[in-house]
Amino acid sequence: MKHLVVVAHPVEDSFTMGLMRAYTNELEKLGHTQRTCDLYRIGFNPALTPRELMPASAREPVCVDVALAQDEIGAADVIALIYPLWWMSMPAMMKGYIDRVFARGFAYESSQGVVHGLLGGKKAVLITCSGAPLPLLVKSGNWNAVQVLQDTHIFRSTGFELIDHLHFDEIAPSLPESAAAQHMERIRSFARQHFYGS
């Protein structure tokens, strides 16, 4: 299978980036091909332009960076997004990627408020982390909001089959090395669980 892994974290040796490396290495060990799109390192511009909001029939051709990103999605069987939750949402860099790349006419069409996804036949995986414990997020209703806005509203509504949303909680700068190692094994196991023999 062909995987596109999109990751957003400004610090290259962060826990988030470590998750990305463990995940992509395991995919390759399983015999899959993967392409990593590291939004910060490539300098992706997250700012949606006025012309990108024009109807497809009225605007000029898609910007080169967006066209490349859409081609990468088109070529992939599975897309994985890896990012930390900041203020219970994705980083602005990742949100800008979604705003610009998951555009009307490419990822969806809508009529009278009803969205029709255009990316059917593809699978998606979400991998997130937070400082807050997951039980606290669930109890407060924040986790439900994440699932509604990110899992359902973005990915399922554009046609993806969302395989899973893997979340790592209580991630802090003081995270012991032993705990970090357990988390890295967890994401490798996740890759084996979903993609062994695929």
Results as ranks from 00 to 15, higher is better:
E28C: 12
S178E: 15
L81N: 04
R21S: 03
A69R: 03
W86P: 02
L68Q: 15
R156G: 06
N25M: 09
Y83A: 15
F15P: 02
P61S: 06
E12A: 13
D169I: 01
C129E: 12
I98F: 07
V11S: 02
F160A: 09
F190L: 13
T128I: 00
L68H: 14
H153S: 15
P91C: 13
K122V: 08
H32P: 04
V78E: 09
V146H: 08
L85E: 05
H9T: 10
H183F: 11
D99G: 08
S130N: 08
S140W: 08
R188Q: 15
P10I: 09
L126F: 01
E185Q: 15
N144C: 07
A92T: 11
L30N: 08
S130C: 12
Q150V: 10
M184R: 08
I42C: 07
K29M: 06
F44L: 11
L136W: 10
Q193G: 13
S198F: 03
V146P: 06
M94N: 10
Q147V: 03
Q34I: 00
H3W: 01
R192D: 00
S14Q: 02
Q150S: 03
V146Y: 04
T33M: 10
G18M: 02
L119Q: 04
V7A: 14
R156M: 11
Q182R: 12
D38I: 02
P135R: 04
E52F: 09
S130Y: 01
R188E: 15
P173G: 07
G131C: 02
F106Q: 02
T33C: 13
L27K: 00
S140E: 13
P55D: 15
V5W: 02
R188A: 15
A58M: 07
F106Y: 05
Q150C: 10
Q193C: 01
G121N: 00
I163N: 04
H183Y: 15
R104C: 12
K122D: 13
D13V: 07
I42S: 14
L149A: 13
L166I: 01
H165Q: 11
Y23A: 07
F102H: 03
G105N: 14
G74P: 04
H183R: 15
G18I: 05
P135M: 06
L81D: 05
K95Q: 06
I79A: 12
L30A: 09
E161W: 02
A8M: 05
G141R: 04
G18C: 04
H194S: 01
C63P: 13
K29W: 03
T36Q: 10
F160H: 05
K2C: 03
G113M: 04
H167V: 08
A67F: 05
T36W: 02
